[in-house]
Amino acid sequence: MSQISPVFKREFLGYFRSPVAYVFLIVFLVASVGLAFFVGGFFKANQASLQSFFVFHPWLYLFLIPAVGMRLWAEERRGGTIELLFTLPLTTLDAVLGKFFAAWAFLALALTLTFPLALTVGWLGQPDWGVIAAGYLGSALMAGAYLAICSLLSSLTKNQVIAFVLGVVVNLALVFLGWSVFNGLLSGFLPVNAVDFIANLGFIPHFDALSKGILDPRDFAYFGSVMALALTLNVVALER
């Protein structure tokens, strides 16, 4: 387990050794804040909350997180460094967790850099800071779930484009399962219980609850389970 930290460090700093980090951070900030302002009606809503900012995150992550996750393993396979990594004295789990936490920390950094938006809300009105904190926490957890899936998919190929496309498709499926429009369609021919069950498999209901400030242990358990399952499969895929 102590071997996680060198892998984490190398991977995290790795983002900043190329323009990837800066391009990503800028796109993330422009897209997330832009969506809140121009599509979400941040000012028009006239509410001291970040609801119109968080509501787009499930859709934004659909493209941005596969962009971060696609390289995690595909790049190691393509460059042959995977052979180097797995002949160093560490376990597969150490490597998987080190890389995953590094990418997650990078995403958390991107999310943290949106703090001026929260400060703006605080300056303009009296927001409920608890709700905002819960929203950030929920968004970070959801990002972890997207990322764990992308990490798994990245380990299946040495082609980053394939890893990206698979990441978008699988995450899209999980977004759709919990999307109210899709659930509305389903309820036309499925009983309510079944629709509820399907919706609960998706990301959005769990994230919505958190972003409204509801801290339900079941939502934490959901995101935790998605990460644990995807990363376990990631280890299995690599040891195969």
Binding site: Q3, P6, R10, G79, E83, L88, P89
Partner: peptide, 28 residues
């Protein structure tokens, strides 16, 4: 074991110093 795989793979974006420092850290 010290292992030199075929065609000596290494993390290209790292400097020689950074790379060896990483190896040394993993080596304990």
């Amino acid at each position: 074991i010290g292992y030199l795989p075929e065609s000596a793979p290494a993390y290209g974006e790292m400097t020689v110093l950074e790379f060896l420092d990483f190896i040394a850290e993993v080596r304990g």
